Amino acid sequence: MPFNLKIIPVSPQGIPMGVPFLAMFNPESVAIKEDVEYNPHCTTGETGSDPAFVRIKARTFTLELTIDGTGVNTNGVKIPIPVQIALFRAATTELKGIIHRPAYLLVQYGTFIVRCILNSSTVTYTMFDKFGLPIRAKISASFTEVVDNVFSKIVGMLSSPDLTHVRAVKEGDSLPLLVHQIYQDQRYYLQVARVNRLKNFRRLTAGTTLFFPPIADQ
């Protein structure tokens, strides 16, 4: 079972802080969802508009894990279903006194390695013995990826309208269009024209370099 999916509880710094949960059977599929959020604002009287980009949401993914208490995958050793569920909960939802919350998780399955948190889990019992005790179950779990704050800030800064941008004018470019691409609002084109000392902003010369300063400085 060394290549089976692992769920490792870790601290905010990524240090293991508990007993990992090792899947008895690898999942048949991993469903990964990515959402891009837009502002669908539409001016009164218009039939539609180009939605403004807001952010890329954190990825979410779902897993379905089968747990078995018959010993079929553990060389005849029967590990009770309640014990296996308790191990899953200890790794994913147990409150950690040091951080006063459930641990962050590191889910690893082959090359799929994600730092995340558990959103929810559902246990479905699918087989019982003659005494009514569960001997097989499925755990359906959903997770949200956690991206390091430093990395997230760097990515955001690279496309932030609060930084100075430099663009080379291409044939057919117009100043309002370029301003809209940078600030998502073409109303700043007069300020940009003034910063670049453009005598005629309606006619841009291809190859000209334009500076788009931070919005706060305009």
Rank of each mutant, 00 (worst) to 15 (best):
S174H: 07
V72G: 12
K138D: 07
E28W: 09
V169L: 03
L204S: 07
N200T: 09
S152T: 15
P2Q: 14
T47F: 02
L163R: 15
S29C: 00
P214Y: 14
G110L: 14
V166M: 08
A141V: 06
M157S: 08
K153D: 13
D50V: 11
A52L: 09
G97C: 02
Y183A: 12
G172S: 09
L163W: 13
L190Q: 10
I85V: 11
P20C: 05
Q181I: 08
P102L: 04
A103R: 08
Y183W: 12
L210D: 02
A168N: 03
Q181E: 12
Q218K: 09
P9S: 00
G132F: 03
A216K: 12
G97S: 05
H165S: 00
P134N: 06
V10L: 03
T44R: 15
V179G: 01
T92P: 05
L198E: 10
L5M: 10
T126L: 11
D217I: 15
V155W: 02
C42S: 12
D185N: 08
A216S: 12
K153Q: 10
G172F: 14
M17Y: 06
P134K: 01
A206W: 03
N196G: 11
D68Y: 03
P40E: 11
K138H: 09
F211P: 00
T205P: 04
A31V: 01
P161S: 14
L204V: 04
T124Q: 03
G45N: 04
T92H: 07
I117H: 02
T70W: 07
I215S: 01
F3K: 12
R89N: 07
V107T: 06
F211E: 03
G71V: 02
P213I: 07
D68E: 13
I85D: 04
I32T: 10
Q181D: 09
Q186T: 14
F112Q: 01
M127C: 05
N26P: 07
T70A: 11
P214M: 07
N4I: 06
G172K: 12
M24A: 11
R136V: 09
V192H: 12
M127Q: 10
I79F: 12
L175A: 05
Q184V: 10
T70P: 07
T124M: 00
D148I: 05
T43G: 01
A58C: 00
Q181S: 06
D173I: 15
N73A: 09
R167K: 14
V195S: 07
M17P: 06
L118D: 01
Q218D: 09
G69T: 09
K78A: 04
F201S: 11
V30E: 09
F201D: 07
Q84T: 06
G45T: 02
G132T: 08
S159H: 09
R55C: 08
G76K: 06
F88D: 06
K96C: 12
R194A: 05
G110K: 13
S49M: 08
Q186R: 13
K170A: 05
Q191Y: 08
G110W: 14
L190N: 13
S11N: 11
G156P: 00
H41T: 10
Y38A: 06
K78R: 11
F201C: 10
Q218P: 06
K199F: 00
S29G: 03
P134H: 02
T43A: 12
Q181C: 03
E28N: 14
R202Y: 06
V54A: 13
N200H: 08
K57V: 13
K57P: 01
V147Q: 04
